[in-house]
């Protein structure tokens, strides 16, 4: 049976609507998630356990449960404790929290990758903790944080497909609709695969532009040991 592009063309409005919804959900969740990730990441380094423990618990819970179940919990349990929930709200909230936890782990890893000596020197000079983070750790951490976050943004886009299960009219729901009406599986799959690929490529491209703008400022010692490892 030949591959018929006309099927895709006819179904385009459905795909387009789904694509836009996915793009909007993912943009919103990414921005909110990145913002939320910062306090979560920093909480791990706090001296008070009132900050460390809730953050660690949140991260562990989100990492050890399926995203779908998180969506269901937010959609079905929160209204019961007084938080009204539409599928849009639940979708964005679930995606945001899920994203925030994973972003925060990347940030935490990046902060830990900055050699401890850099912080020692700052503290020994009398620099306060916020000043040290701002002037020394943050600039150096950028080089370590962008690659994992780039991967996780792609993961977020793919995770958003799950939201169709609570009837969010995004791209994978468009796929299911087209599949249900036309039964043209190969065409529908190719179309949706290309569209997801477009979304993820856009993100990867944007992130690699950003990566080029932030040099890693690795010390000569680090570079030597990195090069030695790469030689293996």
């Amino acid at each position: 049976m030949p591959f018929s592009f006309s099927v895709i063309v006819e179904a385009w409005p459905t795909f387009q609507a789904g694509l836009i919804t996915t793009a909007i959900f993912c943009c919103a969740a990414s921005v909110l998630g990145l913002l939320l990730a910062v306090p979560i990441a920093l909480a791990h380094f706090s001296r008070s356990w009132a900050a460390r423990v809730p953050a660690a618990v949140l991260v562990e819970i989100v990492r050890d449960t399926p995203f779908l179940v998180q969506v269901f919990v937010i959609y079905f349990v929160l209204p019961v404790v007084g938080v009204p929930m539409s599928s849009t709200a639940a979708g964005i909230l679930a995606l945001t929290i899920h994203g925030a936890v994973y972003f925060s782990e990347s940030m935490r890893g990046a902060i830990l990758s900055v050699p401890k000596g850099q912080v020692d020197a700052a503290r020994a000079s009398g620099m306060s903790y916020p000043l040290t983070m701002r002037r020394i750790v943050f600039p150096q951490m950028m080089g370590y944080v962008l690659p994992p976050i780039s991967n996780q943004l792609v993961g977020l886009i793919k995770d958003s497909a799950v939201l169709s299960i609570i009837s969010v009219p995004e791209l994978s729901m468009a796929f299911q609709n087209v599949l249900g009406t036309t039964f043209a599986a190969p065409e529908a799959f190719v179309a949706v695969a290309v569209l997801y690929w477009l979304l993820t490529s856009a993100v990867t491209l944007m992130m690699s532009r950003l990566e080029r703008l932030t040099p890693t400022h690795r010390s000569a010692q680090e570079m030597t040991s990195l090069l030695a490892k790469a030689d293996r």
């Binding site: 995770d159 497909a161 994978s172 796929f175 799959f189 695969a193 997801y196």
Partner: peptide, 11 residues
């Protein structure tokens, strides 16, 4: 790696 697992399952 470029498409959601959910879509792969449906396919």
């Amino acid at each position: 790696r470029g498409t959601p697992l959910f879509i792969q399952i449906l396919i």
